[in-house]
C-alpha cells in the first residue's frame, strides 16, 4: 500500500486540486442555501484554513499549491497559486459578523473579513467531470515531473451527481470518467499514488460514507463514486478519526449524499497534510 505520508513543507510542497461541480443542478437547495453557494463557501473556507494553518504571523508559508477547477459544460481553472499569493490576491473580501470570546468569558460580535477566491454559479450547464479530471491529470503529471521527491498530489472532487456531457448516455460518461480517474490514481511518485477523494452532495438517494466494499453499495451513482475514489492510506487515518469519519481497512475516501457537515469534514480530511503539527 502506498505510504502517502510525506508532510507538505516548504522543501517538499504539496499540490491540492479541488474540482468543483458548476452544473445547473448545483443551484438546487442545500443546507438552507443552494449547493453552489454552500460548496463555494466550503472551498473558500478550506483555502482560508490552509493559509491559516501555515500562517505564523509573518507570512503564509508556501507549503502547498492550490488549484480550483470548475466544471460544467466547460472546464475552467477558477483560481490557483501558492499560499502566499492566494492570500495576497483573493477576488474580494466578504465582511461577516462573528461572535468571538472577549477574553473575560463573554462573547462579542466583531466584523471579520473573509477572503473569497471562488464564486457560486448562476447559470445552467452540463457536468463535464471527465474534462475536469483531464485538466487535473495534466496538472498532476506536470507537477510530479518537477516534484518527484515531494508529497503525492491530492484531488478533491465536489459534485452533486454523475458526469453528463456532449449529450452522451450518462452510463458512457460514467464509464469514461472511471477509466480516467483510475489512470490518475495509477500515477505515483516516491511518496505514493495520486489520491482522489470525493464528496457528492445530493442527499436524495441515501448516504454512503467511506465504504470499504463495493458489493455493499446499492446505488449505482454511489458505486460510480466508489470507483473514482482512492483507498484511504494509513497516513490519513488519524485525520479521518479527527474528522469523525468512520474508517476501516479498505475504506475509500468518499461520501455519497454528504450533508454540509460531512462535506466540510471530507474536505478537511483530504487537505490534512497541509500544515505542521496540529491541535
Amino acid at each position: 500500500m502506498a505510504k502517502n505520508d510525506k508532510q507538505w513543507s516548504s522543501a517538499t510542497p504539496g499540490l491540492l486540486i479541488i474540482l468543483l461541480d458548476q452544473s445547473g443542478s448545483m443551484r438546487s437547495d442545500y443546507e438552507g442555501t443552494t449547493r453552489t453557494k454552500f460548496a463555494t463557501l466550503a472551498v473558500n473556507k478550506v483555502i482560508d484554513n490552509i493559509i491559516q494553518k501555515n500562517f505564523d504571523g509573518d507570512a503564509p508559508k508556501n507549503r502547498c499549491f492550490i488549484s480550483v477547477i470548475g466544471y460544467n459544460h466547460n472546464v475552467k481553472e477558477l483560481c490557483s497559486g501558492w499560499l502566499k499569493d492566494l492570500d495576497a490576491n483573493p477576488l474580494r473580501y466578504e465582511t461577516l459578523k462573528k461572535k468571538t470570546p472577549d477574553g473575560t468569558g463573554g462573547l462579542v460580535e466583531v466584523e471579520v473579513k473573509q477572503p473569497v477566491w471562488v464564486e457560486p454559479i448562476d447559470k445552467d450547464g452540463a457536468t463535464n467531470m471527465l474534462g475536469a479530471f483531464q485538466l487535473a491529470k495534466d496538472l498532476v503529471e506536470k507537477w510530479m515531473a518537477d516534484n518527484a521527491e515531494g508529497p503525492a498530489p491530492v484531488i478533491i472532487n465536489i459534485s452533486d451527481g454523475v458526469p453528463y456531457y456532449e449529450g452522451k448516455d450518462p452510463r458512457d460518461c460514467m464509464r469514461e470518467t472511471v477509466a480516467l480517474a483510475k489512470e490518475i490514481m495509477e500515477l505515483s511518485n516516491n511518496d505514493g499514488n495520486v489520491l482522489i477523494f470525493n464528496a457528492q452532495i445530493d442527499e436524495s438517494n441515501g448516504k454512503v460514507v467511506f465504504p470499504s466494499d463495493r458489493n455493499n453499495i446499492s446505488q449505482e451513482q454511489a458505486q460510480f463514486l466508489y470507483d473514482i475514489t482512492s483507498e484511504v492510506p494509513d497516513s490519513y487515518k488519524a485525520a479521518a478519526a479527527k474528522n469523525e469519519l468512520p474508517i476501516k481497512d479498505g475504506s475509500r475516501g468518499c461520501i455519497f449524499g454528504a450533508d454540509g457537515v460531512q462535506l466540510i469534514q471530507l474536505i478537511d480530511f483530504g487537505s490534512s497534510r497541509a500544515g505542521d503539527k496540529g491541535l
Partner: peptide, 16 residues
C-alpha cells in the same frame, strides 16, 4: 502588506 495586517488582526479578534 494589507493581507498580513488583516490576517493578524482577524486572528487577534477571534482569540486565536
Amino acid at each position: 502588506p494589507e493581507n498580513i495586517i488583516y490576517r493578524n488582526e482577524r486572528n487577534f479578534a477571534e482569540g486565536r
